[in-house]
Design a binder for these strands. Structure first.
Lengths: 153, 153
DNA sequence: GATAAACCCTACAATCACTGTAGGTTCAAG
DNA sequence: CTTGAACCTACAGTGATTGTAGGGTTTATC
């Protein structure tokens, strides 16, 4: 069962993450090692590697560790309805959609700023002016505030 | 000069942010109050309000407080070349562009997941499968990791 | 001029998802 | 059996806020 057991460093390298992150996931209840050596070092089996794969993928999708724990729990009791999983993903897609919209507005603004600046002195630089003047924005992205968004690093 | 002096609460409300955030900006060297009352309470003049406007706008654009401090300093010595400001904005646009690309890939994936799920039980739910299986991704967004991105809340 | 409510003060802890560090232990190769 | 790389725990730091504790100040009303 624990045939090709990986050390924490090997698993981390294969996943492109730091060992600390793995220990962090363990502390968060996302990923436990399959076992430990006599000396206390973590060993990860193929199942753990797969679980990590899921976790990393979900993180890239912007899911929080909390949400991932939800998803993993849901997947564990495999007789439950798919609707809960669906709802989480659907909510996530909404967030992604909104973030894209916002970023595209910002990109447009930044482009406009750059096109108006032509390498003069700061006094006549439109960029700083544009940043200071909300009114000139192409889109009035008013300060909405009920909306958190997990970083998509 | 300090005619229409605002309290921290009034300024915060007018900007749609919390008073703690203003105190945080002060600690970070971004925004000092124009003065204090005899009792030690902060008072902000019109100039401070404008500076805050700039700060909030730049934050919405994804600039870090560090970058904003740079921009403000640059704007202060108004005889310097515009190129430094330009470079900061250009770098920022690159980051925004990359984030949009990633998010659009993610959106596509999430859509695909949802279309494959049709409200069954978790055992036959494609969503969890898709999240676990990187290989089935439309785009192989490999684990690039040299890239930070400030949250765009 | 007293009182009370609303506001403000400092200082510090918590959040999230990690990353870094200190000081010590274990493993695998030679 | 020694060496050095990798591992261990425990804890502090990151960035941009937000929350809390325990007080002081301002303002309006009586």
């Amino acid at each position: 069962m624990a045939d090709a057991a990986l050390s924490i460093g090997q698993l981390a390298q294969s996943a492109g993450i730091h060992v600390q992150t793995l220990r962090y996931y363990e502390a968060q209840g996302l990923l436990a090692p399959s076992g430990r050596t006599a000396g206390g070092q973590r060993r990860y089996g193929a199942q753990a590697a797969q679980r990590l794969h899921f976790i990393r993928h979900a993180r890239e999708f912007g899911f929080s560790t909390e949400q991932i724990r939800e998803l993993l729990d849901l997947a564990g009791e495999s007789s439950r309805s798919c609707e809960e999983v669906d709802a989480i993903v659907r909510r996530q897609r909404e967030l992604v959609r909104r973030r894209i919209d916002l970023l595209q507005q910002l990109e447009g603004e930044l482009d406009r700023m750059l096109s108006e600046c032509s390498g003069g002195r700061v006094t006549e630089c439109r960029v700083l002016e544009a940043l200071g003047d909300h009114g000139r924005c192409a889109s009035a992205h008013g300060h909405a505030q009920a909306d958190d968004d997990p970083p998509a690093r």
